[in-house]
Every structure is written in structure tokens, then in C-alpha cells.
Design a protein around this nucleic acid. Structure first.
Lengths: 134, 134
DNA sequence: ACCAATGTACGAGTTAAGTCGTACTTATAC
DNA sequence: GTATAAGTACGACTTAACTCGTACATTGGT
């Protein structure tokens, strides 16, 4: 009975004591602006990051929590792109892989960038002419 | 909350009287964050914008002024990408097509973004993926 | 008129990125 | 043990982007 690790009942952002180590990611001083901007130039990823930013409580969120209607393999692709660009950090908790935005790191290297993402509005932010198309 | 206060007739640089009208570009309220970030996710374009930002005097700069060692058709491609994303404005002066960054427009819609570009250091592209030599 | 210079348009080849289905791994529950 | 659920890995397909050569247009000068 390995009591090594407690039941992973949701973890907080400030790195908890027994948390698994994050998946491979670039260090803070390795973050590159062009890479981060490229990772954020996709609408779906922008939506992911924004949701992680705005609706974070104090814990990380599993992949399915976001309620995205894409196949799982697509989500894996985008989460990996975000993590490898240094935008999010991911940890494995049992079956789930939970993510959160690397707010402090991004703010240290690219101050103000996170605010832009948080202020982004998914579709055109114009108050559209009530006619919803499609 | 964004946009739609007044018609933003912002003028960036002191325009010479009789200046040609700009080439087709998105209006201020049509700028999309994902598009702008995508335009800035290329190292060469980042270098172009940064140089236009830092070494601007009071006038626009022609394409060849930047001293980029790429074929002209490649430069046309990138300048067009920047203009269509709303990052730069271009005007035709005789033979030359001069460009400048839409500082006020970008600052109004994405405050702080320009500072990130200006602070970017190009030497961090060690394995420049798109910067192939010939 | 001609020529040189600035830059575009078009096209083709190449590369990267997004799309997703399927098979697989792992952890938990039964 | 089996079953289920979360997510990855891999591959194939599609789409977009980058790269550049060449041909063409325009302007200014001679």
C-alpha cells in the first residue's frame, strides 16, 4: 500500500507539497516571444487560455473541464502546443492532466500580455445586428 | 466595452499634406488579437516591426530601407501580412511603398503589445526556423 | 523614346500546422 | 480479474503558410 501519495483531490496553484512534477516545459528565461505569440494566435487556444485565466479558482483544471467540443486528440494537440510554448503548465493527477496558465512567468517576461488575452472576446466583439446567422 | 466610443480617426504620424491614402487595411475596431499575434509570431516580421518602431524618425520608411537580405517577393509577402493584420500602414510614394507601425491603433486595442515587440531581442532566435540562408 | 529602380502578381515547391480516427496506456472503480 | 474513463501517440489527410523565381507594372531620369 503505497502511502506515498495522497488522494489527488484537486490541487492549488501555489505548488503544493506533494504535487507531481510538471510535464516538460521551457524555463522562464527560455520563453520566446514569437513562440508564445504563435501559440496564442489560434482562436481555440486563445479561448482555452482565457478560460483558464478568468475562471480559475485556486486549482488547476483538467482538460475536459473546459467543455470544448473537439475530439480528445485535437485537445491534446493544442494543450501540448500551449505547454511547449510555455503558456501553460500541466501536471498529471491520476487519470487527469491538469493545466493552469503560467501567469507569473509570462508576466515576468512579457508584461501585459496576459491582460490582452484576458480581455479578448471570442467572436467579433461588436454588438452584432441581432440576426444570428448560421 | 471595447470600441464604439467615437469614430477613431486617429492619425499616427504627422501626415504630409497630399499624402496618398493608405493601402487597404482593417479599421481599428476590426483588429483581431489572434490575427495580430499571428502576424507577429514570425521572427522576420517581428524584426521588421521592431525596426520600424525603434528607428522611426518622423517619416515612413520604404521597404528596402530595412536592409533585409531576402528577395523582394518575400518582403512583399511579409509586409502584406503585416498590413492586412493591421500592424503596419503602407502608402505609395512614387516608386516607394512606405510603412509605419500603427502605434496608436494598436495601443488603443491591445495596450502594451507594442512595448513587447519593442523589447524583443532578435538574438534569441538561435535556430531561426524561418530564417534560412541561401 | 529608353533604361534603371522599386515593388507587385502569379505560380510552384516545400514546410508547417490543424483536423481527426483509431489504437493504446494508465488509473480508478467494481 | 474486467470495465470504464482521461488522455496520449501515431498516422493520414487537409489546409495554410513560407520561400523564392520570374514576369510585369509603374515611376523617375536621361
Amino acid at each position: 500500500m503505497p502511502a506515498t501519495q495522497a488522494k489527488p483531490t484537486i490541487r492549488v496553484l501555489p505548488e503544493p507539497a506533494g504535487a507531481p512534477s510538471p510535464l516538460p516545459e521551457p524555463a522562464v528565461d527560455q520563453l520566446r516571444l514569437e513562440t508564445v505569440l504563435g501559440a496564442l494566435s489560434d482562436p481555440l487556444r486563445l479561448r482555452i487560455v482565457r478560460k483558464l485565466l478568468l475562471e480559475r479558482e485556486e486549482f488547476d483544471h483538467p482538460c475536459g473541464w473546459l467543455g470544448l467540443d473537439r475530439p480528445k486528440s485535437s485537445l491534446t494537440h493544442h494543450f501540448k502546443a500551449l505547454r511547449e510554448a510555455g503558456v501553460i503548465r500541466q501536471r498529471q493527477y491520476g487519470l487527469e492532466r491538469r493545466s493552469h496558465v503560467r501567469v507569473d512567468d509570462l508576466e515576468a517576461r512579457f508584461p501585459g500580455l496576459i491582460d490582452l488575452v484576458a480581455a479578448w472576446t471570442p467572436e467579433s466583439d461588436r454588438r452584432s445586428p441581432s440576426g444570428r446567422r448560421k
